[in-house]
Simulated scan of single mutants.
Amino acid sequence: MNIAVVTGASSGIGRSAAIQLAKRGIGVVATYNSNRKGVEETVSEVHGVGGTAVALRLSLSGTADFSGFRAELEEALATTWHRDSFDHLVNNAGVGIVTPLGQTTEKVFDSLTEDLFKGPFFLTQELLPVLADGGTIVNVTSNATRGHVTGPGWSVYASLKGAMSVLTRYLAKELSPRGIRVNAVAPGATHTRFADNVVERHPEIVPELAKAFALGRIGEPDDIGMVIATLVSEEGRWITGQDIEVSGGQNL
């Protein structure tokens, strides 16, 4: 059985990716930071579709914990699946904070950098020895990196997601001798807990947002999760080094 590590799997795109992978017969290691209840619901849903999953806590703020996470991961792989490696890494965990120019503090800048770029970079590096040859990595970026979606207040977030997009291409090149494919998906506005759960707190913004989408609505987690599952599967075997916008034609 193939195994996937999905970061930030307690809700939203991460939860969807975990469930979609499980539907394809892939075991799931679902990570969470503070939302223990959420990740338990994810594990339960994976079990509900006939899959296997375990939950592990992981914070991207502070690389010193990554070696401990790797040890816990190796134990979970051995105990649950009798494996000493895994096959797919989905770097999904992250945060979204509005940071207008002139109002962005260094503390906020550094925190976003850890969560959105430094953390995923060093986590990937830490887990590479455990990632099986012929495996895959999928990074979740954002269409905020595209010129047609530029919006005020998102300069730091978009810049760091842009760094992940560039990293995707370089990882694809450097890991190709091991047969590891690396891609990214770039969602548009999606109904998740993003930006402090802004869609749930302000549902009145959704109809106005939807007007910007060629397909007439904002995204749902499964719109993204299904693409992630496709990229790691046999259907995606000839795709690598790509950052694919999955946005329903936002601002098309």
Rank of each mutant, 00 (worst) to 15 (best):
E114S: 04
G119F: 01
H191K: 11
A4H: 13
S111Y: 15
I19A: 10
L89T: 07
F122I: 05
G62W: 11
R169M: 10
L131S: 12
L215E: 06
T150L: 02
V130L: 08
V166H: 15
L21T: 00
F194E: 11
A195D: 02
F117D: 05
S111Q: 12
G12P: 08
P207D: 10
K23W: 00
V182N: 10
V232M: 03
V98N: 11
H202T: 15
E74Q: 09
V98I: 14
A158L: 07
G27H: 14
E220S: 13
P207W: 10
Y170V: 07
W154R: 15
L123I: 04
V39M: 06
S247G: 15
T141Y: 11
L171T: 06
N35K: 06
S16Q: 01
A18N: 06
T240E: 13
K23I: 00
L89P: 09
G153N: 14
A210H: 11
I26M: 06
G48E: 13
G68F: 02
L175F: 06
P120M: 11
V198K: 14
G219M: 04
M226W: 00
A158C: 05
A78R: 13
G14L: 01
G96K: 10
V246Q: 14
S142V: 12
L171I: 02
F117S: 02
A212D: 03
V206P: 02
E74P: 05
L73G: 08
G27K: 07
G151L: 05
E45D: 02
G135H: 10
E235D: 15
I218C: 07
T80V: 15
S111R: 15
G249Q: 05
G188T: 07
H47V: 07
R193K: 13
F109P: 03
V198G: 11
T230G: 01
G162D: 15
T190M: 04
V28Y: 08
Y157A: 15
I239P: 00
G12H: 03
N91R: 03
I19Q: 10
S165V: 11
V198T: 15
D115G: 10
A53T: 05
K118N: 11
G225D: 02
N139A: 00
A53Q: 02
R201T: 14
I218M: 12
K118D: 04
G236C: 13
S59T: 04
G153M: 06
R193H: 08
T190D: 06
E174R: 08
T240G: 13
A18I: 03
P221M: 03
L89K: 02
L101F: 08
G48Q: 09
S34V: 06
A214R: 15
R15L: 07
V54G: 04
L21P: 07
E106N: 09
A30I: 00
A158P: 10
V227S: 00
V227Q: 00
F66S: 05
G12Y: 07
A172R: 01
L77I: 09
L215P: 01
V185P: 03
A76R: 08
